[in-house]
Simulated assay, not measured.
Amino acid sequence: MPLQTVTPAEARRIVAEGGRLVDIRSAGEFARTRVPGAENRPVGALAPLGGEGPVVFMCRSGMRTSAHADRLGACCSEGYLLIGGLEAWRKAGLPVEEDRRQPLEIMRQVQIAAGSMVVLGVLLGFALSPLWFGLSGLVGAGLAFAGASGWCGMAQLLALMPWNRRAAAGTRSPG
């Protein structure tokens, strides 16, 4: 059975009446910003949810929940998708907890690093040697490969950085 979509206000009502709010983002994303009382069940490790009552699934923007709707629906007997995800929840003025000590999401780190390397390659290419333009080309090729294959070497490398390992080790999802 396809999952129905709900607004943030409807989701809040469902949770207030005994439902569960399940956030399918990664543990690192959840550690930085989350809805109070939400459970973290990353979509890559999602299994059938025990317990009774409806479940409202959410992500950052609603795209991940929509993309995995069939899989999410198989995890519970009564499920809903939060339209617009955490962004819509926040825009509706509903409570959100933020821990700015936690690192940015890996993909945001990739965007910052890749963008900085492209700008650096262009600046050095004009200032020092045209060979530096190759740095921008390599970063662009890496991003194109990541988009086509679904595997991002820069994200893998950034995930190994001490600030990201510390956040992942300190955040545990229930169950």
Score class of each variant (00 low, 15 high):
G140Q: 06
G137S: 02
G134H: 02
G93R: 04
R90Y: 10
L128K: 04
L120A: 05
G137R: 11
Q102E: 03
S136Q: 00
Q111I: 09
V110D: 05
W132T: 02
V110K: 02
G125Y: 01
A92C: 12
E97R: 14
Q111F: 03
V139A: 05
G121Q: 05
E98D: 11
S149N: 04
G147D: 12
I112N: 05
I112A: 13
E97I: 15
A114V: 09
Q102M: 07
V122K: 04
G121R: 10
F145L: 12
L104W: 04
V119Y: 06
A141G: 08
R108W: 03
L138V: 13
R100M: 14
Q102S: 06
E97Y: 13
A113P: 01
A141D: 01
R90G: 13
F133D: 02
A114S: 08
G137V: 00
A144F: 06
V96F: 10
L123T: 05
E97M: 14
R100Y: 12
A148H: 14
P95A: 06
G150L: 01
L94F: 03
I106D: 01
L123A: 12
P130I: 03
V96I: 14
A127N: 10
S149Y: 09
F145N: 14
L135P: 03
S129L: 05
E98I: 09
M117I: 04
L138I: 12
I106G: 06
F126K: 15
F133I: 03
D99L: 13
E105W: 09
S136Y: 09
G121I: 08
S116Q: 00
E105Y: 10
L143P: 07
R101M: 12
R101I: 09
L94K: 04
R90H: 09
E98K: 11
R100K: 15
P95K: 15
G115Q: 07
V139C: 09
A144D: 12
V118H: 01
D99N: 14
A146D: 07
E97K: 14
L131M: 14
G115A: 08
G147K: 11
L143A: 03
V139G: 01
A92N: 09
V118G: 09
V119L: 07
S116V: 12
S136G: 06
S136L: 04
M107W: 12
V122Q: 08
G142N: 10
W132P: 04
A127P: 08
I112V: 14
E97T: 15
A127Y: 08
V110P: 08
P95R: 14
E97A: 15
V139R: 05
S136E: 04
E98F: 06
A144V: 10
A141E: 06
V96G: 05
G137K: 13
M107R: 12
V139T: 00
L94N: 07
R100F: 11
A141S: 11
V118T: 00
L128R: 14
L128P: 00
D99Y: 10
L131N: 01
L104P: 08
G147C: 12
S116Y: 08
P95Y: 11
E98Q: 14
A141N: 09
L104G: 02
G115F: 02
S149H: 08
V110F: 00
E97P: 06
S136H: 02
G134Y: 04
V110Q: 00
L131Q: 13
G137I: 10
V139W: 01
Q109I: 07
L143Q: 02
S149T: 13
A114D: 07
Q102F: 06
Q109T: 10
G125Q: 10
